[in-house]
Amino acid sequence: MSKQTSSSTKRLIAKLGLVAVGMFGFGYLLVPLYDVFCQVTGLGGYVNKGPVEAREMVVDEDRLVTVEFVANVANYAGWDFKPTVARMRVHPGELYTTTYYAKNLANEAVVGRANYNVAPGQAARYFVKPSCFCFTEQPFAAGEGREMPVTFYVDPDLPKHINTVSLSYTFFDISG
């Protein structure tokens, strides 16, 4: 072939190179897409990532839903972290408050933050928290322990076949 690569080949190479670079970017684009997709659909137990207005609604006195509270500590960090009650029987539509207890076992001040997840995923969008300790960073002095409140209600529209909802928190040390 000739020493000079033909111009049509050069254009083709440039386009293909752009595709490759574009797909590298697409890999990164999947990150926000994934978040948006989960938030819109509530898939994977994603719940609204901030306080929500409590709205007036009719309390469904005939129905009882079990809410289970789970606590995890990430990376074996030095925390004692547990729900004060393990489960509650609640009426959909009624506002409840419960607490989690966290204690810093370390000899220095640390900042913690809780991430949360609702199971089953289908229940996620019906589980509403007007206020939660997980919306903010939680500073702890060395050895300090305290109870942290979470206010929630279960939307009466929760599908009928769901009788148990688990709320799981994972506590992370973010002072790092």
Binding site: L16, V19, A20, V21, G22, M23, F24, G25, F26, G27, Y28, L30, V31
Partner: peptide, 14 residues
């Protein structure tokens, strides 16, 4: 190859 290997490169870069 040109559509997917860059995505792998992105993932390992993350």
């Amino acid at each position: 190859l040109i559509a997917t290997l860059p995505v792998l490169s992105g993932a390992v870069t993350m």
